[in-house]
Amino acid sequence: MNTSSTARIFPIYDPKNPPEHPGEEWTRFVCISDTHSHTHYNVPPGDVLLHAGDLSSWGSYPQLAKTVNWLRTLPHPVKVVVAGNHDLCLDEEVELYKSSVVTAAKDMMRNEAALQAGIHYLEYDSAEVTVQNGRTWHFYGSPAAPKYASGSFQYRDIKQGDKIYNRIPSSTEILLTHTPPYGIHDLCKKGTHVGCRSLASHLQSDQLANCRLHVFGHIHEAFGVSIDTLPGGLERVSVNAAIRRSDFPIIVDLRN
């Protein structure tokens, strides 16, 4: 466990006996990513479930539906979700699936059944969500990642990245992106940093001075969590939640 006055982080714990919720002055976020149609994970309860993309394995509608049906069964009253580069049937620009399939996939993420299950699907969107303790949190979600192979929601250069991340409101407290920022939990198997430089620059700017939690995935081998103090004194937790079979969903408690 890593703790401070405003955050408690649990990357490892007994899944049969997860750490006790710290009380109404805190909000518990449970962070996962890159589940790729697998639904065997032991996900602990919490106030908010955050999923940072790659819901499906190879982007088909049935694979996406498997994950969405699983998410609906989880006990978290709020579930904030973005897509990733594997979620092809959610990206109309890929042109792999008919427009009717893309429309149906997007509807599945946002229909009444999803809303009743507490799912908030963000695709370059923001949302204000009030959790059970009465705290309203400001979320923003982006599915994008720098292009490196065929896939969905990808951009080619810093200019395109800047256009995407300029859209993030300054009120954002909880940020979900599929890609990591450059230099933060983005070290790949080859030993190089492969995160997004544009996103890293925006995270260091006044635009995101209110961001307390940034959850991402994409680079599976860089799974992990850290906490840093920003120049203004605000603490920010960064989580690569690209979960593998041996990993636990990362628990982050933030003081309201």
Rank of each mutant, 00 (worst) to 15 (best):
Arg72Tyr: 03
Lys106Gly: 05
Glu112His: 15
Thr27Trp: 09
Asn85Thr: 06
Arg110Ser: 02
Asn42Thr: 15
Glu24Thr: 02
Val81Lys: 04
Ala65Phe: 01
Val80Gln: 04
Val68Tyr: 12
Tyr97Gln: 00
Ser37Cys: 10
Ile32Pro: 09
Lys79Glu: 09
Trp137Arg: 06
Thr103Arg: 15
Ser33Ala: 15
Ala114Pro: 05
Val102Cys: 14
Gly84Ala: 00
Leu96Tyr: 15
Asp87His: 02
Lys106Cys: 08
Thr39Cys: 01
Val94Arg: 00
Gly46Glu: 13
Glu20Thr: 13
Gly23Leu: 02
Gly134Ile: 02
Tyr61Thr: 14
Asp125Ser: 05
Cys89Asp: 05
Ser56Lys: 07
Ser56Tyr: 03
Pro44His: 05
Leu64Lys: 12
Ala105Tyr: 10
Asp34Pro: 05
Ala113Leu: 04
Leu115Asn: 10
Leu115Glu: 04
Leu64Phe: 08
Pro44Ile: 12
Trp26Ser: 09
Gln116Pro: 06
Pro45Ile: 00
Gly59Gln: 02
Ser100Arg: 14
Val102Ser: 15
Phe139Arg: 14
Ile12Ser: 10
Cys89Phe: 06
Asp107Ser: 07
Val102Arg: 04
Leu55Thr: 12
Ala83Trp: 11
Val102Ile: 12
Trp26Met: 07
Val80Gly: 14
Phe10Trp: 13
Thr103Met: 12
Gly134Asn: 03
Asn17His: 13
Asn111Ile: 06
Cys31Val: 10
Val131Pro: 02
Leu96Ser: 01
Ser99Glu: 12
Leu115Cys: 11
Val101Pro: 09
Pro77Leu: 07
Thr39His: 03
Pro18Asn: 03
Pro15Trp: 15
Pro19His: 03
Trp70Tyr: 13
His86Gly: 03
Asp14Asn: 06
Glu20Ser: 07
His40Asn: 01
Val81Tyr: 00
Thr73Ile: 03
Leu64Tyr: 12
Leu115Asp: 14
Leu122Trp: 08
Tyr124Gln: 15
Ala113Ser: 08
Leu122Ala: 14
Asp47Arg: 09
Asp54Ala: 00
Arg72Asp: 11
Thr136Glu: 06
Asp47Ile: 01
Thr73His: 03
Leu122Ser: 02
Pro45Ser: 00
Ala65Thr: 11
Arg28Ile: 01
Lys106Tyr: 11
Trp58Glu: 10
Ala65Ile: 08
Tyr41Cys: 04
Thr103Ile: 14
Val82Gln: 13
Tyr61Ala: 15
His76Met: 01
His51Met: 09
Pro146Thr: 00
Trp70Lys: 01
